[in-house]
Design a protein around this nucleic acid. Sequence first.
RNA 1: UGGGCUAUAGCCAAGUGGUUAAGGCAUCGGACUUUGACUCCGACAACGGUGGUUCGAAUCCACCUAGCCCAGCCA
Length: 545
Amino acid sequence: MENKNFIRTIIEKDLETGKHTQIATRFPPEPNGLLHLGHARAIIMNYILSKDYGGTFNLRFDDTNPIKEDAMFVEGIKRDIAWLECHWDNLYYASNYFEEMYKRAKVLIEKGLAYVCDLTPEEIKDFRGDLTSPGKESPYRNRSVDENMELFERMKHGDFKDGEKVLRAKIDMASPNINMRDPIIYRIQRSYHHNTKNDWCIYPMYDFAHPIEDAIEGITHSLCSLEFEDHRPLYDWFVKHTEMESVPRQIEFGKLKIANQVIGKRAIRKLVDDGVVDGWDDPRLITLSGLRRRGVPPMAIHNFVKALGLPKSEGETELHMLDEYIRDYLKTEARRINAVIDPIKVVITNYPEDKSERLEAPYNRENEALGSRALSFSSEVYIERDDFLEQKPNKKWKRLSLGIEVRLMHAYFIKANEVKYDESGNVQTIYATYDPETKSGSGFNARKPNGNIHFVDAKTAQPAEIRIYEDLMHDTDDSKPLEDRINKHSKTIKQGFIEGDIDIAKNEAFQFTRLGYFSADDDSTQDKLVFNRTVALKSSFKRKK
RNA sequence: UGGGCUAUAGCCAAGUGGUUAAGGCAUCGGACUUUGACUCCGACAACGGUGGUUCGAAUCCACCUAGCCCAGCCA
């Protein structure tokens, strides 16, 4: 369920009053890094707003600064957004509008609203003034239109060195809004652009480029984050004075911040370099690629983002809220199979050693369409170490103990009779007996078991590596340095078993009965299955200790 | 000390002059259960502060407090 938000209110009003007959949104990433969960709000909201009101949604790369950008990121971003199932109607590049932007800059010059400035970067900074005092006008501010036009053309033609001149808008050096103090709109910067190669040596600045990009595409509602609120007067100024026929409206909302996560590029790079995480797609990171690898379904992210809405306030959302949307989505979507992560062998002494049988077991009782499988059972099975305690500790204990009878789900009741330990005193083998009368599906109800536990038939079990992830950061005090907050034990690798004869598609999500949701990792091979724990099942079981 | 914003429970978030102040997450009870899951019932607590306007204020006004953003030839 989506929270109502102020942007929907604006859109609905614009549609009602006839200001727009159709809306158009866009997501404008700069291809200078990878997307993370924080971006999901902007991507998904722009997408669903366009869908909900029958409009269009563009993916537009805001590639106006080649020294920071790379085609590699273009591909990564496209892959991530496609994975998120936010289908763009058009794929555009700001760099395709360079010619148009250049012309619009000339419109400004012709109107006496832009000038070429020869001040050095230091001087420009100096002339800009500061937060509390007004700036000073550049001595080049009153060059003639002709001179400006000629100089600007020469800038484009490469007559000047990088940084030697800039084109600035002529607005107001005394404005309390620093963005209005004659902002730079073009800089000279010779660098290879992933799209336009070496065609240009001047590149437009964001404040100038962005409104023009939006206007060219006929974007009606241009959503961005709060820090651009101060830029809105400039945005409107450029749309107006460059005489764009289409007038987009910039609307700011609060970024989606997730508490206690590493998202900074430098920080992640350090974690990767230090070997703390295994890469940019490590399941402990909230990069979209990390979430994908962890097995998070894209629709769970949609539901999460919709539940959060589109507020103007900026809070920090706890990641465990996403967990609930993951479980909620996978609850009916995932097949449920048996796996044992920390196995103990159980020998069923009254079951013939050479016998083995198949028991009909549905994959998901809440979604019959998922079908069933023939679950294998024999005289030796594995159960979870946690599911056995020699002495039943209290009445609440709903698992196996000596002399206690539990049901192996989908199979039979078993009663533990004897335990064998290894040299270090750990339970090695449990000897049990089963009661053939209690076969699942037989309708047996003469007595109740002390609980229901899951198992894997040892004879057909498939070994599997299971990776358990916990929070990357344990310490929530963000005033401490990152390295002191890192949880050194955020990843645990277990060698367990999953039931045999399950066909497993790459990246398929499963519920491992009573354990949680897991998905097959890319590292899986023909002979070695690897699973990531996406999220554990909830548990109201309070363990002592 | 300039400008732009924000403030509703442990977390997120509706609400725009009249509501018992939605909902979700979390938490705590209980029922049910072949997953200590799911489901279902129940509990739970909030309008940053102080004044003012009004018959009536979370909503309007004033002042205060706290937090965020802005002085890149980044976006």
